[in-house]
Nucleic acid binder design. Structure first.
Length: 796
RNA sequence: GGGCGAUUAGCUCAGUUGGUAGAGCAACUCAUUUACACUGAGAAGGUCAGGGGUUCGAGUCCCUUAUCGCCCACCA
């Protein structure tokens, strides 16, 4: 530990500063620390304080216990950091969440809790791989297949590492008092073991299954994605109405004529008088060079008053049609491949991209006089969240998690679920929250959460990308093996090897898991589960479930729900007691921060310009949980002024109480008599204590934006503007005029010093750097420890 | 189509269980080397989106309308 940082180095530079400020002779007294004579300079102070805090080891609760800062049997408080994606750098949106967590963590630590905050990063599978692929394509003109699985993974690994380093330094710049000794990564060996363990358990319980069905295919990313990874875009589209051929009795409509080469049926409403007579009939015909057989089926899904009232059914390329086809036992004919090219049809159409094929089919319809009408409509198309590719529904053999399948939950700490009872994953997600064990703030997001669960379908978890947790399943001919460890006699073929080679060795499934599968385990995979789960001294035994999750409301489905699912399933418990949802941070025009707009603000930039303390305050101040906020530099500037204000308040108090503070703080005057507070000061104390009591209460209730405001107002408007101004008169009073003058001064000096200490302590979670710096300059009598973060929180 | 949120000072937003409308920024008047110009004092600025209801009392609770924003959904 570097104790020197609290001392004022007696360098030439400082002496020079003293000379420069000599005009202010009133303050150039030997007892006033030299750096106080200058305005507060966050760029010099903040990195130094961060280093000092970090090197003290007190971010780690084990060290706090060892050094006697925290009692071993103290109540526990734990938070896991929502791991940022290793796709780039943090912006002010992250900073809001992380600052919120740091405030709570510092508060709890000072209150004596055994406090743990675990950091980490997320490998973000598709997002990261596609970013690296794009870079390689741009700089080297190579695809991932040119590089091969091993080489690509190496490149992605390097990128992820750089990204992680940036994120770590950003978190440190933020002043996050997080325990770096416990840093985790969603794709490291320990987390991989947890993933394999849970996968195997789910597989054995029949909750993970492999099935051929229509999934969301991203032709750009060359992978499947889950329903939640779809992003909808509004576009104009042509809506064509036509007949398959001249003899076909019913006209249908579509925006995608090229898919009609894969049609197997036309669905009409069984009540529809126009078409009733045709139900059950079959027509074989040639459509654009592809022989197709269309069966007319009756299905209530077909709405009589929409379009022609008849729906062409393309089971292989539409989710809805797939479901209708299932009901009527219809075949599924794939006509579009993974590159979104036509697989069937005449020579003019086969091999063409869907968009070109669409034009060709329309031309063909026109040429054969089959097109009845063509109108422009608004349409929502699905695109892939990470690559922007237009989703092509395709039939594929994929892995799924069954959310509606009952299984026996061996252990249960979830209210409303008995141990050993039959439940579904959906029920776990519902009961963990509806039973009140998990609280959400603001609570109106509960409706969003439940609504999502009600409409939830089985979760497609396999991805055809290489960066991620490989599915722990091996094949040997027709045999399938799922295990935590690879079977012996495994052939370690890479993905590039041509499949289909018959071998007598086990070959692992090529696919990787959805990144949210591993994120879902984060609350316990970061704590030594499963290896050390049974050890009562393990983090898992001590700190799980965690107390609080602070995250953006945009990932309630992706992450919050998946954590509840995974924790409920694997442990029969909840991952956290409370969820605090933060809003989005936007620019002054209300736009989201984005790379393409170039409006993103890097927290490091803020630290350079205004100081991170100011940045932290500006994020918290006036921002209610769950509501979006706007931020601009003007606002941040205001809190830079605030930091400087406290700095000057400190200078004033130390100067004004010069010679008084020793006696004032000891509570005994020079003559040995006790210093009593004057009635006026007693009244100030009462009022002050009330303010600080309510600040604590507000932090306890996670209303940190209100606590920050109260603290700001008291410090500036009450303490500085009124009390300090009033004190000037008291201190200016000439001693010998009346006997009470000296007693009044001592009383006030004691009050000012105590209150300053109180402000600095209470403000510390919000503005850790400036408060630590001031703390180091306060007279020793005021403090019990050098590091403010380990001081006791003031209680009344 | 369903759900959620927002609407408060010129701008950006707070407003705990219902009890006299708040802050920052901007603008206005004054003070001028003061702990601090990264300043202080003062004044100004609001039918709390509109309408209805409950209540002794509503920015806050209920109903309704409007506008904006977000999320979800298989109208081909």
């Amino acid at each position: 530990m570097n104790e020197d940082t609290n001392q004022v180095p007696n360098t030439g530079a400082n002496q020079e500063d003293n000379k420069n400020t000599e005009t202010k002779k009133d303050f150039a007294t030997p007892n006033i620390p030299a750096q106080l004579l200058k305005p507060y300079d966050p760029t010099e102070v903040e990195p130094r304080v961060q280093k000092q805090e970090r090197e003290s080891g007190f971010y780690n609760p084990d060290v706090c216990i060892k050094e006697g800062i925290t009692k071993a049997d103290a109540p526990v408080y734990s938070i896991i950091l929502p791991p940022p994606n290793v796709t780039g750098t943090l912006h002010m949106g992250h900073a809001l969440g992380f600052t919120t967590q740091d405030i709570i963590i510092r508060y709890k630590r000072m209150k004596g809790f055994r406090t743990l905050w675990i950091p980490g990063t997320d490998h973000a599978a598709i997002a990261t791989q596609s970013m690296v692929e794009k870079n390689i394509q741009k700089t080297e003109g190579k695809s991932r297949h040119d590089l091969g699985r091993e080489e690509l993974l190496k490149r992605v690994g390097v990128f992820a590492q750089q990204s992680r380093d940036t994120i770590v330094s950003q978190l440190q710049t933020l002043g996050a008092s997080i325990d770096w000794s416990r840093e985790a990564f969603t794709l490291d060996e320990e987390r991989n073991f947890a993933v394999r363990t849970v996968f195997k358990k789910m597989y054995d319980d029949g909750l993970i299954y492999k099935k051929n069905r229509v999934i969301n295919w991203d032709p750009k990313g060359q992978t499947t994605i889950s329903d939640d990874e779809l992003v909808y875009e509004d576009r104009k589209a042509k809506f064509y109405t036509f007949k398959y051929n001249k003899d076909f009795p019913i006209a249908i409509s579509t925006t995608r004529p090229e898919t009609k080469l894969g049609d197997v049926a036309v669905a009409v409403n069984p009540e529809d008088a126009r078409y009733k007579e045709f139900i059950g009939k079959e027509f074989s015909l040639d459509f654009c060079g592809a022989p197709i057989t269309i069966k007319i089926v009756g299905d209530h899904e077909a709405l009589m008053d929409f379009g022609t009232g008849a729906v062409g059914i393309t089971p292989a390329h539409s989710m809805t049609d797939y479901q209708i086809a299932q009901r009527h036992n219809l075949p599924m004919i794939q006509v579009i491949d993974e590159k979104a090219r036509m697989m069937v049809g005449g020579p003019e159409i086969i091999g063409k991209k869907v968009v070109e094929a669409r034009e060709i089919v329309v031309e063909w319809l026109k040429a054969n006089d089959l097109l009845i009408s063509e109108e422009e409509i608004d349409q929502r198309i699905s695109t892939a969240e990470r690559t922007g590719g237009i989703i092509e529904p395709l039939p594929k053999l994929q892995w799924f998690v069954a959310v509606n399948k009952p299984f026996k939950l061996a252990h249960s700490g979830i209210k409303g679920i008995e141990a050993g009872a039959e439940v579904t994953l959906k029920e776990i997600m519902q009961k963990a929250v509806s039973g009140g064990q998990i609280e959400m703030l603001p609570d109106h997001f509960l409706k969003t959460y439940f609504n999502w669960i009600d409409n939830l379908n089985d979760w497609c978890i396999s991805r055809q990308i290489w960066y991620g947790h490989r599915i722990p399943v091996w094949y040997k001919g027709a045999e399938v093996y799922c295990g935590i460890e690879a079977p012996t006699d495994t052939d370690s073929v890479g993905a590039d090897d041509e499949a289909g080679e018959s071998t007598d060795k086990w070959i692992q499934d090529e696919d990787t898991l959805d990144t949210w599968f591993s994120s879902g385990l984060w609350s316990f995979s970061t704590m030594g589960w499963p290896t050390k789960a049974s050890d009562p001294q393990s983090d898992f035994a001590i700190y799980h479930p965690t107390d609080l999750l602070v995250t953006g409301h945009d990932i309630i489905f992706f992450w919050v729900a998946r954590m509840i699912l995974m924790t409920g399933y694997a442990l029969g418990t909840i991952p956290f007691h409370k969820v605090l949802l933060t809003g989005m941070v936007r620019d002054m025009k209300g736009r989201k921060f984005s790379k393409t707009l170039g409006n993103g603000i890097d927290p490091i930039e803020i630290a350079h310009k205004f100081g991170m303390d100011a940045g932290r305050m500006s994020l918290i101040f006036g921002t209610a949980p769950g509501t979006d906020s706007k931020i601009d530099e003007n606002k941040i500037k205001g809190y830079k002024h605030f930091a400087n204000k406290i700095w000057n308040v400190t200078r004033f108090i130390l100067t004004a109480t010069e010679g008084l503070y020793e006696t004032a703080h000891s509570g005994v005057g020079e003559d040995g008599t006790k210093i009593n507070f004057t009635d006026a000061d007693l009244a100030l104390i009462e009022k002050r204590n009330e303010v600080f009591k309510s600040i604590s209460t507000n932090i306890d209730n996670l209303k940190i934006h209100i606590a920050a405001e109260d603290l700001y107002n008291y410090t500036w408007k009450e303490f500085a503007d009124i009390i300090l101004e009033d004190s000037k008169e008291i201190f200016a009073d000439v001693d010998n005029l009346e006997g009470g003058a000296i007693a009044k001064k001592k009383s006030r000096a004691k009050f000012l010093l105590e209150t300053l200490g109180l402000i600095i302590k209470t403000l510390h979670p919000f503005m850790p750097h400036v408060t630590q710096e001031i703390w180091s300059l306060l007279p020793a009598e005021l403090k019990t420890r050098e590091l403010l973060m380990t001081e006791k929180w003031p209680t009344f």
